[in-house]
Each structure stands twice: as structure tokens, then as C-alpha cells.
Nucleic acid binder design. Structure first.
Lengths: 241, 241, 241, 241
DNA sequence: TATGAATGAGAATTCATTCAT
DNA sequence: GATGAATGAATTCTCATTCAT
């Protein structure tokens, strides 16, 4: 996995494989929590139960370790996208896709934070990643396929690009999590409370599907109750919690 | 910090005001570019045309300077939100609001990056900011008012919360900019090209307004042409650029 | 009091006299607590309710302020020594003198700490103090007089120098207080508990007077009970407290 | 500090041991001379022939280095106390003990100054020292044993505690050295001249033994001449020097 | 007389990284 | 292959002090 690391030797020992994995996991935690500049080599080595020197032995320097982290989470994300099975019904498929995407962000906070950090670095490392270079991004295809299928069946409007749909789906899922702290403070509520998270999951499906509805279609009857309380300032006790 | 610091003076002198402002501006640049951990006091003082020592004289330490930066961009953002004049027509008002919000993000990249960074810090500093504590967030009211007005007139569906609308508007605008690097790489296009930015601006208005359309309404005829080319991988030359 | 300070002006204002005094008192606290190197100008000015600049205005620099502090406590100590009234009975006089000296140390912890600190500085500042240069040290005379008187009356041995007696008296009183922390830790008791302090006061009188007893004299019957428990290690509960 | 610091290594190399020792010795000099606050890391590293960074590598920070210094001098002092061989004759033993204690202070000025400094810090570091916690203070036992032995033989009075005797012995020795500067100035003589030091050594033995004399005993004939001149003010030329 | 503003010179400490076996 | 020892180059922050009116 690492370029030029000790994994190239003929017969890798179990022990060092395990150590390398532990280092990478510790690095994910650390870079995810503190960003590239804030991450500390020492903390990573401690969490991995080894010494600083080993990180250099395995990864050469801090930047290459960071790149390995990016590669790992990217690979995992791609894997999850590949595992998504597209149902036949485009509407249901789109709904499942959006939910799946949201669920993935929710269950992979490291991914969200590492992506934020990498964008703060203006994508410096992801641009030169071999993994990204090699691998296509399955979600692009999935959305594209789903959209075409729905359009062919007349259940999706025709004047919409899959690029826009993809960006819309990611926006609505990612932002809610990535900006939870400032938004919770500004709005004065805990956006991450269970009921709010559930309500948002439904909301973003509705937003996308409503948008995809072809011109003549009748708007579906929406759920009659809104499970979260109206926006209120100043940390009001959350009646929905 | 020495007793009798600059914040205590009764009548500030022109000269020191100017320097303090230059320091703050340089700090906005630096923290925005490198995040809290990556920011360097020395770079800030150099950009401001002074020496490190003055930052400590004015702000005490790195963290307080960072907080001043957060306070400043927050205040500016609030100001822009206050300046937004809500038109009478709710549909047009909503459209303008979304566009305005997007335009603000586009023209204030520092704001976007600083918010990303602050969320990476889990909102540690914004939570304890006096400015945020004191000031309400005008956009909350604006969205709420617009929504209520449109609902009263029957042009907006009734089963939607202003909290969701606010988060939707912010998501669609913010994410496109905040995650431009990773998304551009993944999708294989330059999301920030002029035509793409224009198209996205229109798209997010459409998404929101389509969602707000009341059940019985006829979907408006969408613009017949999609100004951006379909998603394509591998840094294809952008035909629309 | 201060050399070259603002007190030289013709009509000193009440306010600045008071401030100067407050500064000096704050400086006594600070230098006494932290020593010369550890003392902070800022803390002194804050405690005195003023700003750093004023200390420089009144005293010129840190060293001169420290010297003013030394001068003040020296003057106070000399005053206390002058106020001591020597009784006619040399034995009783000596006993009172020792007790008085001990009591003074106990009630002036600043004095003890400042003297420790000044000795750590190898007497650098006290050597060049005008006050010390000008003023004789009354205790020298008092001890000398008492000793001579007792020797003339035959109640004190004749082969003892007043220098030794003075140093003995000061040693027994000062050390117990100055080294209370290390000694308490080593011995494993709280040397500063009330009963122990009382017992020590009596003990040092006994030591000195026993030593001064002329050759043929019968040793006085000492007090039959020792109010403090024997030395024991490890912070044993103090049964005498 | 980096994980895997020098204290963890299994088999220390000669070279690093030597450097670590040099650093500790330089630190003893520096802390002893300037106290904790006045000590400079740079001066220590220079005297030890290394760079600042190494002090942090070995000791982590200034405070831990200071604690190592305290531990070292404490250990050395304990060692010296252990090496003291108690003679059979309690009177002679006590005399030797007092002389030994005085000689130790005289030959270890660092010890005296570091103890002064530590007491100025209110014993903050010695209280939390593992060395002190683990090790008993041999002098306590020695004095106790000697006292009991003398009391059993009837040559020491019975109404005296070993705690008081220990504090008396330490007071008379320590203070003379610790407060030499202020006392020399006050009294107007050089207390550290060779004859005065010799005379004081004898004096403190006499003081303690006179005090320990049992009630009925005849006071021993003291030495007929006092080798030092009477107290005189103003830096008179010392005729005994 | 009084005082707010400004600052140079250092001080402790951190951090990623390389040396040497 | 693996690891303990060592370190150069910052980096944040402190502190007494002076400037300027």
C-alpha cells in the first residue's frame, strides 16, 4: 500500500503488517481530528503503540502518511459506492441512493472531516493521488444511470444534468454534517439530535425527488407532520428530542 | 498581556486603529488560508507590516486573534444579511434570497474557508463568541418571514419548516464552494468555471422553488437548455468554458 | 523615600503618595512571593491598581523598586528592634529578646522571604543600600549590652562573644521558618502547627540561656513535659494538634 | 516529549549517559546560582556543551530538570548522612555529628542555595518528589539514636525531643551560611573569614552540648579565648583574617 | 505631572525529521 | 529489517522598558 515502504519485502511478517495498519488507523483519527497542520506525529505513534521513528520507516514523512490516509478513506468510500445496488424503480432508486449517501456520511465522520480538511488544502493531495487517478467515481455513474432510466420512463424531468443531481445530493447530505457546529449555534438548536437527523434524511429525499418530478406530474402528498419544531433562537429546549 | 492594553484606551489614535485593522485583515487571510494550526503569527505580522510583538499587544495570543477574525467575518456576514431587502413577491423573494446567499459565498471565499475551519474545530470558538451570543442570525428571520408570506398567499407548500429551508439554501450554496476541489477531481470537471457557476446558481434556485411549490401547482416550464456539458471523467477539456 | 522619584516636587498630592505606597506594598508582596527574577512588573501594577508605566515613573526600573522594597522592610525591622525595651534582669531580658525576635519573624513572613531572596542574590542590593549604610543595626547593640550586663552580674558566662550570641538567636528563629517546607517534608511533620511553633519558641530560649549559664551554676529544672511528639516519618497524624 | 525518550531505553549508551550527567551538573550550578525563575535553559545547555533541545529531550521541560536537580542533591545529601558513622560515646558522637553537618553545608554551597530556593517556592517540588517520598531521612534516625543512647547513659538530659535537637543542629549550621550576606552587612564583619567559620563550628557544638547536659552536671570548662574580635560596624578590617 | 502606545530582545518549548547501528 | 538516540529550525509567547505627547 505504501510507496517504497517495508511492505515490498518478499515475506512480510504478520506483526509489521498489523503495526502498519494500526499506524494508518491512528493517522486517520489524528488527521481527521486535527487536520494536516494540527496533526502530531507523536500522537499518531502513541495511539498506534509505537514510536515516531516507525512512521518514517513506513511512510517516509508526514505528508505521505496523510496521503495514505486520504487513499484509504477514498478507497473505502468507493467500495461503499460500488456496493450500492440500484433498484429497478428509478424513483425508489434515487430515494435509496440519497439515503444511502447520507447514511454513509453519518456513519463515517472521519470521511467528512478529512474531506473538509483536504478542501481547505485546496485538494493539493487528492489531485496527485494515484488511487483517485486510477479509479473512477462510481457515484457519478450510478446517478447518471438512475437519471437516464427515470427520464426514459418519464418519471424524471428531462432537463437536468446528472452533474447537478450528484452535486445536489452530496450538498444536502454533506453540509448538514460538516457545518453542524456553526449552524447549530446560529440557529440555536442541536441539529444533530436524533429526530432532527431523521427529519433531515427524509427532507433531502423529498427535495431531490420533488425537483426531479416531470412537468405535468402531480406533486405527491407530502407527510402531513413536520417532526421538528420551527427554528428558534437561543438554545431553546428541544421539544422534539 | 500588559495591563493597560490597547482595548482599554479611551480615545484610540488613528495610527493604532489603522494598524489594528491591517493586522486583523492579514489574520483573516492567514487563518482562512492555513487554518488555525497552520496559521503563522510571523506571516500575519509581516503582511500587516509590523512585528509579531504587536499581535500580542493587540490580541494577547493566537487564539484570541483567531476569535477576533471569526467575530469580524461573522459581523460582516450578519451585516450582509441585514442589508437584504425582501421583495413583496415571496417566490421572487425566495429566488433573490438564494441568489444573494450564493453570491455572498462566492464573493467571500474567506468566509467559506473560515467556517470550514471552525467546524473542523467543532465550533469551539464560535460557541464562546460574544458577538454570536448577542446577535441574532437575520437569515433565520428572513427565511421564516418569506416562507410564512408565501404560505399565506398559497404559493408555497405549507408542510415545510423554515429551519429545513434555511439549511437547504445554505447547503446548496456552501457545499459547492467548500468542496470544489475534491468534487472537481472526482467528477473530472472544473466546477468553478464561469458557466458552471452560473448554471449552479440557477439550479439551486430551481431546486428550492420546485420543492416549495404547493401540491396542486403546475411545475413551471424549466429552461430548455442545460448550459453545462454532461459529467465526464478525466479532466476532459471543458467545452462550455 | 524613592531616589529621584516624583515625591520631590514641592506640594505632593495625596493621590500620588497613596499610589506610591500601594505600589511599594504590592511590590513587597510580589518580590517576597516570587523573588527578584520571578517577580512580575505587571502583577505589581495590577495589585496596586495602576499600570506598568507608573512603576517606571516612580522607581525607574525593576531593580530600584526591589531596592525600595528592601529598604522598606529593613527600616521596619530596625524600627521594631529600636522599640524593644531591655529589662533590667539580663536573664529575663535575653529571654524576652529571643522571644521578641522569633515573634517578629513569625509575624513578618515577607521579611523572612525577602531576606532569603536577598541572600540568594548574594546580598547584591543590600550591600549598596543607603539605608543599611546609614543605619546601625540595633540588635547588635542590644545583644551586646544585655550580654555585658549579664556577665557583669555573673549570671552569664564570660567567654562568649555577642556576635555569636546574635547569630545564634537569629539562626534558631529564622531557619525554623525559612526552611519550614523542606524540613517538614523531611521530618514528616507539620512544623508550623500551633503547638510545634509554641514549643519551638520555648526551646530556643532554653537553648540560648542554657548556653549562657556560667560554669558553676546549677542547671535550671526544665519543664518536665515536652509538648510535641517525637519525630516520626510519613506525615503521621499530629497528636499534639 | 517524543515517545521513546531517553529514560525508556533499555541499555543506555556511554555517550548519552555522560551528556546527561553534564547537563545535570550544569543545571545544578545554574539553578543554584539563579533560582528557578532566574535560571536560563540556554546557559545550562552551553555549560554542558550541548544545545537547548537536548535538555528537553532528556528532561521534558525546565521544571522537570529542576526536579532532577533537587533529586540529585537530595540523594547526595542522604548518602552523606548514611556514611556518617556514629561513635560509641554519645557526647563525642553528637559533637562529630554537628561538625559533620556543618562541614557538609560548607562544602556543598549548592545544596544550601537550592534548599533556600526550594523553600522560597514553598517546597512545591520537593513535596512531589518520588525520591523524598521513598527515602527516609537518615539524620532523623541518627539524632534520635544518639540522643537515646546519651539519655540512657545519663550524659544527656531526658526532657528533650530529637525533633528539636535535629532542627537546632540544622538551624545553627544552615543559617550562618544561608544568611551570610545580609548578616555580614548588618554586623559589619565578614562572617565567612576562615577564623570566624572555625569559631562558629566550635560554637555550635558547644551550644548544643551545653543544652544537652543533664541537670546536675558541671558545665565543662570552655575554651578561654574567643578567637574572633568583638562585633564592630562598618566593614572594619578584620583583624583575625 | 502623568499616561497610553509601542517594542526589542529574549525565553521556553515544539515539531518533524535524520543519524547511526 | 528495525530501532534508540539525537537534532535543526522554527514557533509561540514573555518581559522589562522606552517613546511620545
Amino acid at each position: 500500500m505504501t510507496a517504497g515502504g517495508p511492505t515490498r519485502r518478499g515475506v512480510p511478517r504478520e506483526r509489521s503488517e498489523a503495526l502498519e495498519t494500526r499506524v494508518l488507523e491512528a493517522a486517520i483519527d489524528e488527521f481527521s481530528e486535527h487536520g494536516f497542520a494540527g496533526a502530531r506525529i507523536e500522537r499518531i505513534s502513541q495511539r498506534a503503540g509505537t514510536v515516531d521513528r516507525m512512521l518514517y520507516y513506513y511512510y517516509g514523512n508526514k505528508e505521505r502518511l496523510y496521503q495514505a490516509v486520504l487513499g484509504k478513506i477514498y478507497t473505502d468510500m468507493i467500495g461503499a459506492q460500488r456496493n450500492f445496488v440500484t433498484p429497478d424503480d428509478p424513483v425508489e432508486g434515487m430515494r435509496q441512493l440519497i439515503g444511502h449517501s447520507w447514511d454513509h456520511y453519518v456513519s463515517h465522520p472521519h470521511l467528512v472531516r478529512l474531506l473538509m480538511n483536504e478542501n481547505l488544502l485546496r485538494g493539493k493531495h487528492i489531485a496527485q493521488s494515484e488511487q483517485v487517478e486510477r479509479t473512477s467515481f462510481p457515484l457519478v455513474e450510478t446517478v447518471s444511470t438512475l437519471l437516464a432510466s427515470g427520464q426514459a420512463k418519464g418519471v424524471f424531468r428531462s432537463d437536468v444534468s446528472s452533474e447537478h443531481m450528484l452535486m445536489t445530493i452530496m450538498s444536502l447530505g454533506f453540509f448538514y454534517l460538516s457545518n453542524q457546529y456553526t449552524c447549530s449555534t446560529w440557529i440555536g438548536v442541536d441539529l444533530m439530535s436524533r429526530p432532527r437527523r431523521k427529519a433531515w434524511r427524509k427532507h433531502i429525499c423529498d427535495v431531490v425527488l420533488q425537483f426531479l418530478m416531470p412537468p405535468g406530474a402531480t406533486a405527491p402528498q407530502p407527510s402531513p407532520v413536520d417532526p421538528v419544531t420551527p427554528v428558534r433562537r437561543r438554545r431553546a429546549a428541544d421539544p422534539s428530542a
